[in-house]
């Protein structure tokens, strides 16, 4: 049952990438992809939450009655999200304001719930932790690519620093929500084409 650590990472980041293969959980984070810094903070929050929730649920898996497992999982996830939210409010108040309600929406992110439900309930704590961590990283990888493209083209900057000269005309569409869908669709297209070729 227990797979090797390296195998877990390869599986969760590439072969079963939550965004590309399962189109899961893009709601809470796609919204903040117009600035790379915001996306990075969100991705860190999501990865930590997924990893720690998987660990906790896996530790408690023998004690949780089957019927109430969903609500227990939600409690565990909400617990970590609240800690992350309070941490942001205390140490990074500006980013906390910019992210607004989206931090709370990590609770309903399908990836976190999906990993605890599908993996952590049936596997040992260490391996569940790695599975959660890997899924979070695989998810972050795609979202960071989207954010990089959107910030460079939409604002001509990266992490808030200008990288193009004064003559660069911002692509207004990249700031608008619609572009997030287009960019993600193209990334999906490229990844899937590569996968089909490999096979």
């Amino acid at each position: 049952m227990n797979e090797k650590a390296g195998n877990v990472f390869r599986r969760t980041i590439f072969f079963e990438n939550p965004v590309i293969i399962q189109i899961l959980g893009i709601c809470s984070t796609l919204a903040v992809t117009n600035k790379l810094l915001n996306t990075l903070i969100m991705c860190i929050g999501l990865t930590l939450t997924t990893a720690l929730s998987s660990l906790s649920v896996s530790l408690m898996r023998k004690a949780i009655p089957r019927k109430v497992r969903m609500i227990v999982e939600v409690f565990v996830i909400a617990f970590y999200v609240i800690i992350f939210d309070l941490f942001l409010k205390a140490y990074l108040p500006e980013i906390s304001v910019a992210l607004g309600p989206y931090v709370g929406l990590i609770i309903t992110n399908c990836i976190v719930m999906g990993r605890t439900e599908a993996y952590a309930l049936a596997n040992s704590p260490t391996i569940s932790f790695l599975d959660g961590l890997g899924s979070g990283l695989g998810y972050s990888l795609i979202l960071l690519i989207v954010a990089t493209i959107r910030e460079i083209l939409g604002f001509g900057s990266l992490f808030g620093f200008r990288i193009f000269g004064e003559n660069f005309v911002n692509w207004t569409i990249m700031v608008m929500p619609a572009s997030a869908f287009f960019v993600l669709a193209v990334i999906l297209w490229i990844f899937k084409a590569m996968m089909i070729k490999k096979r």
């Binding site: 869908f181 669709a185 084409a193």
Partner: peptide, 22 residues
């Protein structure tokens, strides 16, 4: 195109819908 089937094309449709709503 095969790699675009399913989620890919759906995302593009949603993108165009979002543009229309602008």
């Amino acid at each position: 195109p095969v790699p675009l089937r399913g989620a890919g094309i759906t995302l593009i449709i949603i993108g165009i819908m979002a543009l229309a709503f602008i």
